[in-house]
Design a protein around this nucleic acid. Structure first.
Lengths: 116, 116
DNA sequence: TACAAACATAGATGCGCGTCTATATTTATA
DNA sequence: TATAAATATAGACGCGCATCTATGTTTGTA
């Protein structure tokens, strides 16, 4: 998986306001002014947050007249779930395969690395 | 879902080094010195990162002799996947249910909120 | 054409975070 | 008991981030 891209998604999501924006968009598209109504911060701040979400590939923007419509990227929803599952599983591509535990190898403790 | 707890998990994960630590632990327990070998930063920095992961409920620590063993929390792995699925889905508990789109309501654009 | 609405950009500010060095603490061992 | 190994704590530093105000840009409308 694309480690760097996954971290960028996590960083973009790791803000309570941006997480709420994602939640608001989970049912469909919304324009900026409607999103803004749910928050206390200023309009430029929302503009900043939307740019962060776009750069992370989470949100797509489409302009129609005066309004800027935002939608969750389908690819993000799929990729993020997939990357998360892979991170928390110990499959063949896991980085932990060449890892040993010094304490365990010394025979002084009972803890064992399940993969060795 | 616990919004605040989920954000705390995301923040803890939104660092490339901590994400690699989680990946290293996805196969089993490791002590601090073994984790440290995979990074360039100092030992106090690792100690700091492990504390962040513990406070977020991602990692559990267990001391045996000189060694501090770290393990991924089973509850975290379950909760995080579940919260993620709920965030990206539009079920009954979604915050977007009382949301309308001004631009759509005006009838000037073709975009519609899928839930309305 | 003038004005208002929706949104973006520029620049500044304050706070948090990742990292460091130095030192303390705990535990095993000679 | 002295020493070394493994880890934690304290305090400092620099950078990035979330936010703001002020202003620019685009688009629809009277």
């Amino acid at each position: 998986m694309d480690y760097q891209k996954y971290v960028q998604m996590l960083k973009a999501m790791a803000d309570p306001n941006r997480l709420k924006i994602i939640d608001l968009l989970s049912c469909g598209s919304l324009c900026a002014c409607d999103i803004l109504e749910h928050f206390d911060f200023s309009q430029p701040t929302l503009s900043h947050h939307m740019k962060v979400l776009q750069n992370a590939g989470i949100v797509a923007a489409r302009k129609e007249g005066k309004w800027q419509h935002y939608t969750l990227q389908a690819e993000f929803m799929a990729t993020f779930k997939q990357d998360t599952a892979q991170l928390l599983s110990s499959d063949d591509q896991c980085v932990c395969h060449d890892v040993t535990c010094t304490a365990c190898a010394s025979g002084k403790v009972v803890v064992t690395n399940e993969k060795n």
